[in-house]
Design a protein around this nucleic acid. Structure first.
Length: 109
DNA sequence: GGTGTGACCAGCT
DNA sequence: AAGCTGGCCACAC
């Protein structure tokens, strides 16, 4: 099998994010390995465009619940739109009910 | 093989 | 209180 790169781990976690839930880069980073490698998670997501299948990257936001990567979706507002479809209240590029929608990969509940 | 970069986070000033 | 700096690890040139 392919070597489970950091990317694969990140992608695996992102795919496991249930509908209507969001998580943070730091949470994934902490789950995959180091806590400080949150940047690697975001960078992995940047490569997600080359991934064989689309990932729910819109469910991954920063610690503040801000849609930092919305610019990478190709269409501005797409990330917010997708989140709103999942019941998220997005305003000013930030999820207001982020606290309620937050999904911890360590719990996987 | 070294340097730079990256959708971040936490701590310090 | 808010702004800035450092740190963290993996990949491309």
């Amino acid at each position: 099998m392919e070597d489970p790169s950091f990317f694969e781990k990140v992608y695996a976690v992102v795919r496991l994010i249930p509908f209507g839930r969001v998580t943070s880069y730091g949470a994934i980073a902490g789950y995959t390995g180091s806590r400080g490698s949150a940047r690697m998670v975001g960078w992995a997501m940047n490569a997600s465009h080359q991934y064989r299948e689309p990932l729910p990257a819109h469910r991954v936001v920063n610690r503040n619940g801000m849609l930092t990567g919305k610019h990478h979706f190709g269409t501005p507002g797409l990330m917010q739109q997708l989140l709103e479809q999942e019941g998220a209240i997005v305003e000013d590029d930030r999820i207001l009910n982020f606290k309620e929608m937050f999904w911890d990969p360590s719990r996987m509940l």
